[in-house]
Every structure is written in structure tokens, then in C-alpha cells.
Simulated scan of single mutants.
Amino acid sequence: MFSTLHRYERRYQGPIQAVIFDWAGTLVDFGSFAPTQVLIDAFKGFGIDISMEEARQPMGLAKWDHIQALGHLPGVAARWQAAHGRPMARGDVDAIYEAFMPLQIERVAAYSAVIPGALGVLAGLRERQVRIGSCTGYPRQVMNQLLPHAAMQGLVVDHAVATDDLKAGGRPGPWMALANLIELGVREVAACVKVDDTTPGIEEGLCAGMWTVGLAVSGNELGLTLAEWHGLDAESQSQRRAAAGRKLAQAGAHEVVGTIADLPAALSRIEARLARGERP
């Protein structure tokens, strides 16, 4: 007779150990305007007008990849062809990126006020001994400007990974999120949550095997300043939030909330799912 062998299935059912945050539209820069407006200005320097809506479409990618993706949008590609007599090439992406970088370094702080609720949420995580990681579509040179500016406002994370820190690259791959866990010494990927306002950022968390929370109000999908958001009537807020939330949910977010201020309730729901033996 042969005995039946049962594979042991290991399930983590403890508390959340780490939260990995995006930056623009998540922790700082309500509406995520620093990257979009500077991209618009960089393209304008090459004779190409792009709209804010176009600039937002590839948001979440590394900035070189973002520029390349913009060049592939039909409308932008047609305008480039008309202005330059040829399709956008890799060298053009390099040239726009080189023009973009000093503008982004110069202006990132001006756009990067801490989003309301962020400081309290991070303080609450630290009280629970949850590690706080972060990653971004910004390159390291930009983060070197942003991190001290955030610290001056009281926002400090345990670790930050920039999109050009790793040979493997950035989003939507899992590498930046996983690099945080290595640095933070977190061994349970299923005990980690990725928080982001873009679909590539949600995909990043899913690829890493983490729980994901999408932010529908403060980030790229809604694309309003805090004042513009508060200026909407209740019905308009509900409609705009629902539309942004649907995109993040369709990308696979386990939870979708408004801003980082709403994160604690989402984390409680995720911990309840963990306790039931569910996995990301």
C-alpha cells in the first residue's frame, strides 16, 4: 500500500508587519502634480503640447519609461511626427528626460506638501511596530530633494527606494517593493501592504505578493488639488471618487479608500482576512 502524501501549506495569520507607500499622490502632493506638470513643461520645450490627461495616463512608471509611453500615445505621436517629421525615437526620449530631470529636481519640493492624515497614520503604524517602507517612480536625484523636504514637515519613512536604485528596474515589476522588505528585515511577504494611487503601483504590489490598497481621491486617478476636491459638491465628489476607485479595483487592489487618512480601517480589514487564513 502507498500512503497519500499531503503537501504542507503554510499560511501566515498574524498582524501586518510592513506597509510600503508610494510618494506623490500617496504621502505628499495631493493630486500628484509634481511629475505631471513638469512632464508637460519638458515636452513643451520640444515643441509638443500634451494635456494633463495625457500626462497622467502612464503615471506610476519610472520617468524615462513614462516619457516613452507618452510618445506612444496616438495623439502625442501624431503631434511629434508633425513637429519633427519623424516618429519619436529612443534618443528623443533621452533628450526629453535630460530636460525633465533638472526641472523635476528644482520643483519637486514646491508641490510636495504632506497629504492630510499622513503624519498621524505613520505615527500609528510606528506605535504598532509596523515597518514603513516606500518606493516611487522618481529617480534618486529627485528623492534626494524630496526626502529632506518631507522630513522638515515631520514625514520620515524607515526606507525609500527610488526607481533607478535597482538594476532590475521599476514598476510594474515587484523589485522596489521587495527591496524594501530586504532592507527592513521583514520575512513575511503576506504580512505586507503596498499603498499606491496608480495602477502600475497596484500591479507592483500584486507582483510582489503583497496586499494592495488603492487611494482614489488624493492621487493620479482623480487628479485634483485638495482645494479643488473640497470645492466639489457631494454628488460630484461621489461620482469622481467612484470612477477613480473603479480603475484601481480593476487593477486588482484588495482595498480602495480615499486618502491615506482612511488607511487604518483598510488595514484592519486586511488583518481580519489574514486571521481567517486568506492570502493576498
Rank of each mutant, 00 (worst) to 15 (best):
A243P: 05
E203Q: 15
Y97L: 09
E278D: 15
G154W: 04
M210Y: 00
L39T: 14
L224F: 09
I48S: 06
L215N: 01
L5D: 13
G91R: 12
P148I: 09
G252M: 08
V114W: 01
T225N: 11
S218M: 04
V256M: 03
L263C: 03
Y12R: 02
E188K: 06
V193L: 00
G14F: 06
M210S: 10
L224T: 05
D262C: 09
Y97D: 09
P15C: 10
N144D: 15
T36E: 12
R7H: 15
E271K: 04
Y12F: 14
S218H: 00
V186G: 07
G209A: 12
V156F: 04
G219Q: 03
A208N: 04
R171P: 10
Q68C: 11
L178T: 06
C207E: 13
G231P: 09
T212P: 08
P148C: 08
Q81P: 01
E235W: 12
P35W: 08
A190L: 02
A227W: 07
A265R: 11
D41G: 14
F33A: 08
G133E: 04
S238K: 12
D94P: 01
H66D: 01
T4Y: 13
W23C: 07
A177K: 03
Q250T: 15
P200M: 05
P172V: 04
A168L: 12
K63T: 08
S32N: 15
A95S: 13
A162N: 06
S112L: 04
D165V: 07
A177Q: 00
R171K: 12
G45H: 12
A113C: 07
G117K: 08
Q81L: 14
W64R: 15
V19T: 05
L70I: 14
I270T: 02
I132W: 11
M1S: 15
L248W: 08
L248N: 00
V186R: 02
R10T: 14
A160L: 11
S218R: 01
A99Y: 11
G137F: 04
C207I: 00
H6G: 05
G60D: 03
R131V: 07
G47L: 08
K44S: 15
G245E: 01
R107G: 06
P148E: 05
F30W: 01
T26A: 01
E271P: 07
R10I: 15
T136C: 05
A177Y: 00
A191L: 02
A42P: 10
K194W: 00
L248C: 02
V256I: 10
Q37R: 13
V114C: 09
M1D: 14
Q17N: 04
G31C: 11
L147H: 05
Q68P: 04
A99T: 13
L70C: 09
P200G: 08
D41M: 13
P174G: 09
G231Q: 06
F33S: 04
G71W: 02
V217K: 09
L267T: 02
A110G: 12
R187I: 11
G124Q: 10
D262L: 09
A55W: 01
E255P: 05
H72Y: 14
G277K: 09
R269T: 03
R279Y: 12
G258E: 05
R131E: 02
A216Q: 05
H66C: 02
Y12G: 01
N144A: 15
D41K: 14
C135W: 02
R128E: 10
A95H: 00
I202D: 00
P58N: 06
L155C: 07
H254R: 07
D94M: 12
V19Q: 01
